[in-house]
């Protein structure tokens, strides 16, 4: 319940960041335009990676519910790795953009773009840390509550991060400014 409330609250957080981006997406006084630097095939692959991590997360949850802890550790690891891949891709993408002349302070578009995607990236990173910690806790048998419930809660968070990306991918990348 607390997690759902938190996610409801996060809707307003990302809503605000997305709105800021939408308001400022066209305001490019200097620097490259998004259409010149976005690498849609590359970002599509990372989007796909993140989407599939949602699937592996579901598998982690169901196997924990079946008390098949070996499986659940495996799927948690895979999910974390996919998440890490996504973050890695984002780091690569940011560096590429930066080299092409789009710094954080170049223009309003870039500031709001980096703020939005960066915030999302931090959420994914926090998710990855939680997944790995969870995996460690399960293998050391150090958990202090209902294990299936904990996995499920972190799963909710993970899926939420995924749906935020579903929106960002469409609004930011696929619909040109």
């Amino acid at each position: 319940m607390a997690m759902w409330l938190f996610l409801g609250s996060e809707c307003l957080l990302f809503g605000g960041l997305i709105s800021t981006y939408m308001l400022y997406r066209g305001r490019i006084t200097q620097g490259p335009r998004p259409s010149q630097i976005f690498d849609i095939p590359f970002t599509s692959v990372s989007s796909f990676v993140l989407l599939m991590s949602s699937l592996t997360m579901v598998l982690a949850v169901t196997s924990t519910q079946r008390r098949d802890y070996e499986r659940s550790k495996l799927w948690l690891t895979v999910t974390a790795l996919l998440g890490a891949t996504f973050v890695g891709g984002q780091v690569y993408e940011f560096t590429a953009f930066y080299n092409e002349g789009l710094g954080f302070t170049t223009n309003l578009f870039s500031s709001s773009f980096y703020t939005l995607t960066g915030f999302h990236g931090v959420h994914v990173t926090v998710g990855v840390i939680m997944l790995m910690a969870l995996r460690g806790i399960i293998s050391k048998n150090r958990d202090t509550g209902d294990r299936a419930e904990v996995v499920e809660l972190i799963g909710l968070y993970w899926h939420f991060v995924d749906i935020v990306w579903i929106i960002i991918f469409t609004l930011v990348y696929l619909i040109p400014a």
């Binding site: 409330l5 996610l7 409801g8 609250s9 809707c11 307003l12």
Partner: peptide, 8 residues
């Protein structure tokens, strides 16, 4: 809880 947040 969730849809209130989303709707708002």
């Amino acid at each position: 809880l969730f849809y209130t947040g989303l709707g708002l």
